[in-house]
């Protein structure tokens, strides 16, 4: 028939434990990312995203164990990001069972990591995560800049130009987070999402700001995203994956339903 729009729950993992685990089912261990992954697998999530926020480089091996154990239990696609600095990090995650690896700050610092990783693993495995903030004044033509370190550090890079550049270098997907909207529940930055989606020929995942199911719909219909990523609305059981899919399907979006 046709390719379906993806819903991707994202789990933050620190030192091998989830920061906000799912609480819509009874889990033996709420802090175990693999338990949360299994719950989302059973719930019909289309992909899973792990964002490793482990601060110390020494503890970075913990995410490999999480990915490995997830691959043993969940036969679904997994993207892993956070702290990926070298092609060797990409390789280690892929060997553990990740299907895609997301690169953020390392690509801002040195764009060639995108080309090097894509050459080795194929563009389809390489995601570039872009954190963008609107920097134009109200009334001006909209402009967004890339920020790093959770939105604290400006880079001077124009988000649209950067997206085009990394896609040309071999990024197979853009994970686009609006730092203005992240955590607000006010909905995606639709103008940003649409501008980036139209600037590149690779799929764009919309992220940052989901509070309602209509926000998910808008990300696709107005933002032109290929997939939508959300965290808290699913983790806290505000909505189930099935409810979100049914709602998007009613809005005319092709979905993989139960």
């Amino acid at each position: 028939m046709t390719l379906k729009t993806r819903i991707i729950p994202c789990l933050d993992v620190k030192n091998g434990r989830v920061v906000k685990g799912v609480n819509f089912v009874d889990l033996a261990d709420v802090g175990d990312p693999v338990e949360s992954a299994k719950a989302y697998d059973a719930a019909g999530a289309d992909e899973l995203c792990f964002l490793d926020i482990t601060a110390s480089h020494e503890a970075r091996g913990t995410i490999l164990d999480v990915v490995r154990r997830t691959a043993e239990n969940c036969f679904m696609p997994v993207t892993v990001g956070g702290g990926v600095r070298e092609v060797a990090d990409v390789r280690a995650l892929m060997l553990a069972g990740a299907d895609k690896v997301s690169i953020n700050t390392a690509a801002v610092k040195d764009r060639t990591i995108v080309a090097r990783a894509a050459e080795k693993f194929g563009a389809q495995a390489i995601v570039v995560a872009i954190d963008a903030k609107r920097v134009s004044a109200p009334g001006e033509a909209a402009r967004w800049e890339i920020f790093t370190h959770g939105g604290r550090n400006p880079t001077g890079l124009d988000a649209l130009e950067y997206a085009r550049e990394v896609a040309d270098l071999g990024a197979g997907e853009i994970l686009l987070t609006s730092m203005d909207r992240d955590g607000t529940k006010a909905g995606f930055d639709l103008a940003l999402t649409r501008a980036v989606s139209e600037a590149v020929t690779v799929p764009v995942v919309a992220s940052g700001g989901v509070g309602t199911l209509d926000h998910l719909v808008e990300g696709v219909t107005l933002g032109k995203a290929s997939a939508v990523l959300a965290a808290s609305i699913f983790h806290y059981g505000t909505y189930t994956i099935a409810e979100a899919k049914a709602h998007m399907a009613r809005a005319g979006i092709p979905m993989r339903l139960n």
Binding site: M1, L3, K4, R6, A123, Q124, G172, E173, T201, V202
Partner: peptide, 9 residues
Amino acid sequence: KVPHMGWNT
């Protein structure tokens, strides 16, 4: 969009 990425029948 390419890559063809996701679930298809």
